[in-house]
């Protein structure tokens, strides 16, 4: 799930420690070390990274946070709503010491805990679907680029086809015909699984195209030829010569794909085909807000801002990673 993040996070602190060691002997700097030094200088990207980390922590510790500051996300507080209009009784959407971000209209659930729990769904779907997309994209992209010929032709046509699809429509259509129980899964678990697979499946051609292009140019390089002339097998060339050089572009596109997936998940839940209530999701909360925002405008601000901050943080961080890993970058 967090494979790409773990990479950058575990490798690089180690690299920093190595670089800070007292002996000032001349040592080669790996591209990753160079990238990390560049990233460290980019304060905006680091800020984005910190927010991303915080969001992940919020998602992991959602039950604890809600226990301390809120009410269970699916608990109804109808007594705090106006029985006729279904709107919160207090001012500003019912914000109080007890309900930090107010009360959901109609159902009377605690907005704060729904936002906190919403981070779980949002990040879980975004990370897992990015993982699906990156895995498929890498495998097929490398295959297309390395083997060429009819393999390349077939994979490229499939990618073109998927890119020509009216994707959002198709995802909605696909999810709407999924039964409520399938292969022993049901409820929100099934929904999340389907979202991950579908978003991941329609995302892989974007990565696949980039990986294919990179592989095409890498396989003609001298060092690959050298390995081949030394008698290296196909697997050795793929995993030891090509893949390490693909990690940088793959990392960049993964970090930039996650915010897109956050937006897609929110959009699908907003349209009512994503996560189903009462499971909390930012998109679903916004869909409720559509019906009530004229009377309770504050209610739509919180899920909207939550999505905005998440996507913005990932974008800032992703931009920083791209600039750090791209030696030609002039930004």
């Amino acid at each position: 799930m967090t494979a790409s993040l773990d990479d950058t996070n575990t490798d690089e602190p180690a690299a920093v420690v190595a670089a800070d060691k007292p002996q000032k002997a001349i040592e080669g700097r790996s591209p990753w070390k160079i990238a990390w030094t560049r990233l460290k200088r980019d304060k905006v990207a680091l800020a984005g990274g910190v927010v991303v980390l915080l969001l992940i922590l919020v998602a992991i510790f959602a039950p604890l946070i809600v226990k301390a500051f809120g009410h269970p996300p699916e608990e109804l507080h109808e007594d705090l709503l106006d029985p006729l209009l279904g709107l919160p009784l207090g001012d500003y959407g019912g914000i109080s010491k007890d309900f930090l971000l107010g009360i959901e209209p109609v159902n009377g659930r605690d907005v704060f805990s729904r936002i906190v729990y919403g981070a779980r769904i949002s990040l879980l779907v975004a990370f897992l679907s990015a993982f699906v997309a990156v895995s498929l994209g890498t495998v097929f992209g490398v295959m297309a680029g390395y083997f060429g010929g009819w393999v390349d032709a077939a994979i490229s046509r499939v990618m073109d086809l998927l890119l020509a699809f009216p994707q959002l429509l198709f995802i909605i259509a696909l999810i709407s015909v999924i039964p409520s129980r399938l292969w022993g899964f049901e409820g929100s678990g099934l929904r999340i699984g389907v979202l991950v697979l579908v978003i991941g499946f329609f995302g892989w051609p974007y990565i696949g195209r980039i990986v294919r292009g990179q592989t095409l140019s890498l396989r003609e390089r001298e060092y690959v030829e050298a390995a081949r002339s030394l008698g290296a097998g196909r697997a050795y060339i793929l995993f030891r010569e090509l893949l390490p050089n693909l990690v940088a572009p793959i990392t960049v596109y993964t970090t930039l794909m996650i915010p897109t997936n956050v937006l897609t998940e929110a959009a699908l839940s907003f349209l009512g085909v994503g996560v189903k209530p009462p499971t909390p999701s930012w998109g679903e909360t916004l869909a409720t807000a559509v019906r009530t925002y004229q009377d309770d405008p504050l209610f739509m601000i919180f899920p909207g801002v939550a999505i905005f901050i998440t996507v913005l943080a990932f974008n800032l961080f992703g931009d920083g990673v791209r600039d750090a890993l791209d030696p030609k970058g002039s930004r």
């Binding site: 915010p259 937006l263 929110a266 959009a267 907003f270 916004l286 807000a289 559509v290 925002y293 004229q294 405008p297 739509m300 909207g304 999505i307 905005f308 996507v311 913005l312 974008n315 800032l316 931009d319």
Partner: peptide
């Protein structure tokens, strides 16, 4: 950057409101 990070339905609702 803020613009690409905003969901369109949220901007839309904000604008209407």
């Amino acid at each position: 950057l803020a613009g690409v990070s905003l969901p369109i339905y949220f901007t839309g609702m904000l604008f209407i409101a």
